[in-house]
């Protein structure tokens, strides 16, 4: 007989939470989960639709292993998998996360027809020429002339900003908001300025205004 249950089931107001032991082997875990679903806990687990969260603890599960666990639980038609959480992630995922939250530094001239696309905040040391485009999931800072197009927050981050030491863009986009000069912001001085969204409207302001509208822009210093 097993000494200790590998799967602990707790009920919460959001549904059931399965705590899976992270010290035993994966096979033991599967066996115990099957036992509980198919035999011992039949009664508790039958009934109306219930949301299930899986907590993997410090166990790293490959997508295939996660599928296996999901399949076992799905046998019960009334159990709906809501989330699968682990306290650990792979190095690759960690690196991708790090990239997203760090500042990418690039030195080049983005010329007509070229597209520079990045995840996270982008610092471009160079010009963006007319016909060229820079895109980023985060904010875009151009230490040079921005004469082309810039799209910050391409995945919908409305807090993202676009800053340039010479603001002369053909078009600016933040999240899904598109704006051209002479549309909303007529007073372009071509000096060090930044663009941000205020109630889904593009606003361009002098750089010294940044700390007032986006005080959190300096958040990532550790």
């Amino acid at each position: 007989m097993m000494t200790k249950s590998k799967v602990t089931i707790k009920g919460t107001k959001d549904g059931l939470v399965f705590f899976l032991d992270d010290t035993c082997s994966f096979d033991e875990l599967v066996t115990d989960l099957k036992e509980k679903i198919e035999n011992s806990h039949q009664k508790i687990l039958s009934g109306p639709l219930v949301r299930v969260s899986l907590k993997l603890g410090k166990r790293f599960c490959t997508p295939e292993q996660q599928d296996e666990l999901t399949k076992i639980i799905r046998q019960k038609g009334n159990l709906v998998i809501h989330t699968i959480d682990a306290d650990v992630i792979s190095k690759e995922e960690a690196l991708a996360e790090l990239l997203k939250s760090s500042l990418q530094i690039q030195t080049q001239t983005v010329r007509s027809g070229q597209v520079l696309e990045y995840e996270g905040d982008l610092l471009l040391l160079g010009d963006v020429n007319p016909g060229g485009t820079v895109k980023s999931t985060g904010s875009i800072y151009v230490l040079g002339a921005l004469r082309g197009a810039a799209h910050a927050g391409i995945q919908g981050d409305k807090q993202a900003i676009i800053a340039s030491s010479m603001m002369r863009p053909t078009q600016l986009r933040i999240a899904e908001i598109i704006s051209r000069p002479s549309d909303e912001w007529t007073e372009l001085k071509g000096s060090t300025e930044f663009a941000y969204l205020e109630e889904d409207q593009m606003v361009v302001a002098k750089m010294n205004f940044l700390h007032r509208v986006r005080p959190e822009a300096s958040r990532k210093k550790t």
Binding site: R111, S112, G113, Q114, P130, G131, G132
Partner: peptide
């Protein structure tokens, strides 16, 4: 000038 810029990008 725009086309020249494009060409320079390709030449690089």
């Amino acid at each position: 000038v725009r086309d020249a810029d494009r060409i320079i990008g390709l030449l690089e």
